[in-house]
């Protein structure tokens, strides 16, 4: 990463399912290149043998025991908040695989 990295905005925007205008993309591209350039600082650090830190505390085995069923929502909780629903199911435009 010695060269300043450059984001392929179209590729990333598609992964993130974000519709953006060309103007938005152009502006964002410049800003993000600046930010990524700033991130280059990290390459100066020796991280050999350092364990990545995914959580603030080292804790294991946090779980729910007993497999006892809890409360459920009535279907109306979902259908009331959904943009479109029918017969207690959420409706979306036809999904073609």
């Amino acid at each position: 990463m010695s060269e300043t990295p450059h984001i392929d905005i179209d590729y990333v925007a598609n992964l993130a399912r974000l519709d953006m205008t060309d103007a938005e993309k152009a502006k964002l591209g410049t800003q993000l290149d600046d930010i990524l350039g700033y991130f280059d600082k990290l390459n100066a650090v020796d991280v050999d043998g350092v364990e990545p830190m995914a959580h603030a505390h080292r804790v294991f085995n946090v779980w729910r025991e007993g497999d006892q069923p809890g409360e459920t929502y009535a279907p109306e909780v979902l259908t009331k908040m959904a943009p479109e629903s029918r017969d207690n199911q959420v409706v979306v435009p036809k999904v073609v695989e």
Binding site: M81, P83, V92, P93
Partner: peptide, 20 residues
């Protein structure tokens, strides 16, 4: 994503545009 509770675009025509 416009499916269950958040904003859904009126231009959503298929699964892809529903999201984007």
């Amino acid at each position: 994503d416009g499916v269950r509770y958040s904003h859904r675009s009126e231009e959503a025509k298929d699964a892809m545009t529903l999201f984007t």
